[in-house]
Design a protein around this nucleic acid. Structure first.
Length: 923
RNA sequence: GGGCGAAUAGCUCAGUUGGUUAGAGCACCUGCCUUACACGCAGGGUGUCGGGGGUUCGAGUCCCUCUUCGCCCACCA
């Protein structure tokens, strides 16, 4: 195979194999794109710098730097690539900015596992050595996913590859924190947070995911200190936390307990006394209506504890072990000291049972929060953390979606988004990890804790030289939320990229990270640059197996995209993903039968290849005149038809892809849900190239191509033109095979790439009558083929068809050769000979009569005609009764009534025709 | 517990503001190596539009209700 960016040698068709050799072609084509700098975005060409192009920016959701490409990435990035290639062809200055995320907690976990294999923990190595080790690991193995994305055709601007932990982006993270700190939007909070005892860090609310579980509800009796025969029974799911109880709360209006409020109870297991308090938070209906209060180990109890000024003893260590951690002297029975929290629970239950305090154990369904990275049950823990105030940040982001500055597709996510933002809670951004951006806060000997843009030598407040930096790092999402601005150069105000390409256009991602990432990017866009970072959020579905299970490593039901590329080609992978890409719909793939999922894409590529092969064989060594030079008057019926179909296909593809951007910065209600119907776009393009161009036009021009002359040149020019445009329409989905073919088309110029060729535009309306005439031809051929199959006429056996003189007959006669070739049928004008005959009434009303002498039995045709007559009569009766209904004629719109009347006339005529045939043939 | 969404052919899904006889792809069946393509060509059938009720001249489409499934959020210990 020749180099794809070379001028196609004439008569290349003769040398082409029957199938596209994607293994050889894909790397060569990728190299040609890269060499040409086809994906490089230049700020100078944008309107914002006086150029003539609209910018179109897409920012990759940065995969974890340690990630290996899976089919979910394949889906996400193929969608982005389709949009980006489309806009690039449409003439926008298109930037698809790639990069990776340092993924603090995830990457740290990976390296900790490696270190664990050496029998060590991160603490054995120490902070500095561990971070260095992680850096080395990332430098060695990180970012391979970007290489893998190239092999599926991703047309990102690789010269701009970003990394959340690079010096540039780290500067943005620091600047963001310092600004928020200066504005009082970050604060140090002392409260109960989610703590992962395995990762040894706090987590945000979003990182502590709910999992339903079958638990137990333990009813435990707390006796009155003054009268042990009396007491209160509480309900708890975590009896080990009794050790940290400081009170029992009841509802203030609960008459069952009102006499006991203010009295003292003896705390089981511990033996100290705690008060009975009244608090409206308690639900009377739940459990026994009495709630033990454990301020240090439950977020709600913490609030109750604060209201009542209670002590907050901590009895569970960071590692999840029971012990007197803080303010808990004398509370830990020696049997429980040092036990893991779950072992302690079992032991505590046994002890309670032995002492008679355990009243009952009930089964109890509830949700348990688990760490989103390691699935360890999260421990609520009293702790000091950095928080971002979310309400002020969320306000403009909420407004943006409500007023149409930003649209979320599918629309249902807008409601979810609004629901979440309206109840938003502050964001815990500090992590007790080592891998990540260090919190830029230093505390001096005089306890001045201040945020610094540059590492300080002395305290800004008092000049003290004894400074200590906060040991914590930021939540990894605290860098991700800046992605749309930090990758473009913020906080550098003079950044050309920022000026040219911000705000971006479409964000393509999965709904799972709507809150983690998408919403927060919108917050950051407004907070730091005063505007939305994108106008459209496209939330695509998930790749699932045939049992609708999410594809995952642990389930072993995954599909390796690179394996698919190897076996079927990148185009096939992309085709399958896009063609199944209904708006917000999950894509189902069968990991046990790759052929089922990916053969259709490969087959389509082969079909394209063979259309190209046919054209190149026909073109031969002769030049082809450019379509623009063809005299419109010289166009034949089929030419006009296929050109009309091309216009229709362009319009459908454009409608499927939708408006690239809102016109005035706002999505009007009518346009809010338009576009990004990638499946509809794919199907329109496929239908045009395969079902119209290949199935009909190519067949229709075959005879014209045989004879030299002016008409042959017209046919060749049109053929090349419509195929060229078909390739353009399909290029965003199947970039490799289309590029390979386009390079070989007559008129291809060295160095010109389909990837940067113009997106097709419609030529305007075609004469409807001409288009209709070709459709008549197709209808006739279809009808004759159907009759042939129905009567089992041997394929080689010719038949005759008779048609009454008239306009329709003229069309059939003028194209008799085509009918002859495609339907094996000679057309005659006039009355058919007597005897058995099959009848075909075309949708346009034209009737064909096929004499069947010797071929079939009359009974069969009669049965068919009677069946048709029967169903038509029934429909006609229904139609007539509707028309007879005065309410219908009075209330339905005139246009509807007129249409129904016209239909009634047409159907009665056809019914009579049919009835006559039945009488003639069957009676 | 609150909120949102879905239920249409064996499978995955379309079905625009209610208006012909509800569509597509895949799968399946039959016949064809008709020289661009067997990774192809031609033909074919399949639906009580989840159940029930209502509004309307007319409901897959709007309303109510039930059933099933999914998603998001949440401080029932």
């Amino acid at each position: 195979m020749s180099e794809p960016n070379q001028t196609a040698p004439a008569a290349a068709g003769a040398e082409l194999p029957t199938h596209f050799d994607f293994k050889a072609a894909e790397p060569a084509i990728s190299a040609a794109w890269e060499t040409a700098g086809a994906f490089h975005a230049d700020p100078a060409r944008t309107k914002r710098f006086g150029g003539d192009r609209d910018p179109f920016t897409v920012l990759i959701p940065p995969p974890n730097v340690t990630a290996v490409l899976h089919v979910g990435h394949g889906l996400n990035n193929t969608v982005q690539d389709v949009l980006v290639r489309w806009r690039r062809m449409a003439g926008d200055e298109t930037l698809w900015l790639p990069g990776t995320d340092h993924a603090g907690i995830a990457t740290q976990n990976v390296v900790e596992k490696i270190v664990a294999k050496e029998g060590k923990t991160r603490f054995d190595l120490g902070r500095e050595a561990f971070v260095k080790r992680t850096e080395e690991f990332v430098a060695e193995t990180g970012g391979q996913i970007l290489q893998q994305l190239k092999s599926i055709g991703a047309s990102a601007d690789w010269t701009r590859t970003a990394y959340t932990f690079s010096p540039e982006l780290s500067r943005a993270v620091r600047e963001a924190f310092v600004r928020l700190h200066e504005k009082g939007l970050v604060y140090r909070g002392h409260r109960v947070i989610h703590w992962c005892p395995r990762c040894l860090t706090s987590l945000s609310d979003e990182e502590a995911e709910f999992h339903d579980s079958e638990g137990k509800l333990y009813l435990v009796r707390y006796p009155l200190a003054d009268d042990p025969s009396n007491g209160i029974t509480i309900a708890t799911t975590r009896p080990e936390t009794i050790l940290a109880d400081v009170a029992v709360a009841v509802h203030p209006d609960d008459e069952r307990y009102s006499a006991l409020v203010g009295q003292s109870l003896t705390l089981p297991l511990v033996g100290i006394t705690i008060p009975v308090i009244a608090d409206g938070y308690v639900e009377r209906e739940f459990g026994t209506g009495a709630l033990k209060i454990t301020p240090a180990h439950d977020a709600n109890d913490f609030e109750v504890g604060k209201r009542h000024g209670l002590a907050m003893p901590v009895v569970i260590s960071p590692e999840g072990k029971v012990g007197a951690i803080a303010d808990a002297e004398g509370r830990i029975p020696k049997e429980l000291d040092g036990l893991d929290r779950f072992a302690a629970r079992r032991k505590a239950v046994a002890m309670l049972e032995a002492s008679g305090a355990l009243v009952k154990i009930e089964n109890h369904k509830h949700s348990v929060r688990k760490c989103y990275r390691c699935e360890t049950v999260v421990e609520p823990r009293l702790s000091d953390q950095w928080f971002v105030k979310m309400a002020p940040l969320a306000a403009p982001a909420l407004k943006a979606v409500k007023d149409g500055t930003i649209r979320l597709l599918p629309e249902k996510w807008e409601k979810v988004y609004i629901n979440w933002l309206e109840g938003i809670r502050d964001w815990n951004i500090s992590r007790q990890l080592w891998w990540g951006h260090r919190v830029p806060v230093w505390t001096c000997g005089n306890r001045h804790a201040l945020a610094y843009r540059e590492d300080p030598a002395v305290c800004r407040s008092c000049g003290d030289k004894q400074l200590e930096q906060d040991p914590d790092v930021f939540d990894t999402w605290f860098s991700s939320w800046l992605w749309p601005i930090s990758t473009l150069g913020w906080p550098d105000r003079d950044s050309k990229d920022l000026k040219a390409f911000f705000p971006s256009d479409v964000l393509v991602t999965a709904p799972e990270i709507l809150f983690f990432w998408v919403a927060r990017m919108i917050f950051a866009g407004y907070e730091f640059l005063g505007r939305a970072p994108f106008h459209t959020v496209y939330l695509h579905g998930t790749v699932r197996d045939m049992q609708h299970r999410k594809m995952s490593k642990s389930l072993g039901n995954g599909i390796d995209p690179l394996d698919v590329v190897e076996r079927y080609g990148a185009d096939a992978l992309r085709w399958t993903l896009i063609q199944g890409m209904g708006l917000g719909v999950d894509v189902m793939l069968d990991p046990s039968d790759l052929d089922k999922s990916f053969a259709p894409g490969r087959n389509f590529a082969t079909k394209l290849w063979n259309i190209g092969r046919f054209i190149l064989l026909q073109v031969g060594d002769d030049g082809v005149q450019p379509f623009e030079q063809v005299d419109p008057a010289a166009l034949q019926l089929a030419d006009r038809w296929i050109l009309g179909r091309l216009d229709a296909a362009i319009a459908e593809c454009d409608a499927g892809l939708g408006p690239a951007r809102p016109r005035d910065g706002h999505w009007p209600q009518a346009e809010r849900q338009l576009g990004l119907r990638l499946d509809a776009y794919a199907e329109s393009a496929r239908r045009f190239v395969w079902n119209e161009l290949a199935d009909w036009y190519v067949e229709a021009v075959k005879s014209r191509l045989g004879e030299a002359g002016a008409d042959r040149e017209v046919a060749r020019a049109v053929l090349v033109h419509v195929f060229d445009h078909g390739l353009r329409l399909l290029h965003p989905i199947m970039p490799f095979v289309t590029e390979a073919l386009w390079q070989r088309l007559p008129g291809a110029v060295t160095g010109r790439l389909l990837a940067t060729a113009a997106w097709p535009t419609s030529d305007g309306e075609r004469p409807v009558a001409e288009v209709g005439n070709f459709d008549l031809l197709r209808e006739a051929i279809d009808a004759i083929r159907a009759l042939r199959a129905q009567y089992v006429v041997a394929p080689g056996n010719p038949v005759r068809a008779f048609v009454a003189a008239g306009a329709g007959a003229d069309v059939l006669i003028a194209n008799a050769a085509l009918v002859q070739r495609l339907a094996k049928c000679r057309v005659h004008v006039g009355s058919p000979p007597g005897g058995a005959a099959a009848h075909a009434v075309l949708p346009s009303g034209l009737e064909l009569v096929l004499p069947l002498e010797g071929m079939v039995d009359v009974a069969r045709e009669c049965a068919r005609l009677r069946g048709e007559l029967d169903s038509l009569s029934k429909q006609l009766d229904a139609l007539r009764s509707r028309l007879a209904n005065e309410k219908f004629t009075a209330k339905a719109p005139a246009a509807v009534v007129d249409a129904e009347r016209a239909k009634e006339r047409e159907w009665s005529a056809r019914t009579e025709q049919l009835a006559a045939k039945v009488r003639e043939l069957c009676d």
